[in-house]
Design a protein around this nucleic acid. Structure first.
Lengths: 212, 212
DNA sequence: TAGATTGTTAATCGATTAACAATC
DNA sequence: TAGATTGTTAATCGATTAACAATC
């Protein structure tokens, strides 16, 4: 496959395209032009065509895009045609919420393990996944295919655990801990900083009030 | 206050500055130059100075920035010096997780209400906040100051509830439902699309595997 | 074929970086 | 004062939009 470097701006938009195409598919829409889609999604048609052409020509002149085909292709681009096994480290509220977020499985994401350090949680199950003690981590990863580690533990513990996770050979972290992990560059980290998001909301509220 | 339009790219970086400055403050660092900070944060010094100067001159030539002062000023820019009352709609796992996310309170975010439609949850309390039935929403908002509604209900219900929330006069939504809300433009919506985030992670994993 | 719409090149716009005069 | 470092202007880079030839 051609080693084109695709900008982050483009990649961020792909799941959104996927979502809208999924909706169109659910409505039995067979085909759509970039200009129709641009109206629905509130972006320019030009951007849609540019974005898609980073990955190949999925459309047809005079016709537009076949919704089902494009949906599937974007799914492949995003790796949704493969299964991703996830362990969740930190079985507090957020960890349990993620574990329960069943829908993720629809897209090939499967929670295979749930870890915590609190002995009180030992043996308890969340959605049929028993909570394991963190000291079993290395054994578990050695015996199970794990693609992603989700970090829902307190941030104080995150860097130590990150080292252990990386030593086990896990190459991708979905990080909810409110800090930046310091890791080798071949480890992929996707951050979800809820507190940053809330601050951005707060900024916009404040700005709106000022302008009144 | 001068009505400068500040780009989204800048606003997104502000919470990150705030976080790093908070860490420096915790380490009793009194002052820092843009170039020192740029090394820690892995951005250019130029960008730091440009970003900050959108909001005013917080530094001093030949000295740099006073950490405590800059931290406080960014806090004010982000509206963290004010209290924000939040209601959470959808008392499932994610709603409860957010409710329990005590730390938010440190920054002036207070969960004042928790709603659901499931009668089984009626009367149950999460962190001393009782779960109310959704039909009490309008009454509750009329009698309590509510700044933000967090959406943690299933996406099918999100748009209807959004209309009700907006009719109550709430002007800001923190949206975890995996769809885009269709609302008047004076309503601020901050989206947290966990599934998009996971797909981006999946993309990067896939790409890395291809290049091996 | 004629009309429609893509894929792609060129033009524009905005964001980032570099440079440096101002000044503490 | 001399050195350091900001605030800000100018240059560069990258992303978005416009335009249009290719083609279904």
């Amino acid at each position: 496959m051609a080693e084109r470097l695709i900008s982050n701006a483009v990649i961020k938009r792909m799941p959104r395209y996927y979502r809208y195409l999924g909706d169109l598919l659910a409505n039995d829409t067979e085909r759509i032009s970039s200009s129709e889609l641009s109206k629905i999604m509130n972006v320019t048609a030009s951007q849609i065509r540019q974005d898609l052409n980073n990955f190949g020509g999925f459309g047809q002149q005079g016709y537009g895009y076949n919704v089902k085909y494009l949906y599937d292709e974007i799914g492949k681009i995003l790796g949704l045609d493969k299964t991703h096994n996830i362990i969740i480290i930190g079985a507090g509220n957020l960890g349990q919420a993620l574990t329960n977020y069943v829908r993720f499985e629809k897209r090939g994401f499967v929670v295979v393990g749930l870890f915590d350090v609190n002995p009180r949680l030992s043996g308890i199950s969340v959605r049929n996944i028993q909570i394991r003690m963190l000291d079993e981590l290395e054994d578990f990863v050695a015996n199970n295919k794990v693609d992603i580690a989700a970090f829902t533990m307190p941030k104080e513990k995150a860097n130590d655990i990150a080292d252990r996770v990386v030593n086990c050979g896990i190459k991708a972290i979905w990080n909810f801990a409110n800090l930046e992990l310091d890791l080798p560059e071949d480890v992929i980290v996707e951050n979800v900083h809820l507190s940053d998001s809330l601050m951005q909301l707060s900024y916009r509220i404040t700005k709106q009030k000022e302008s009144e």
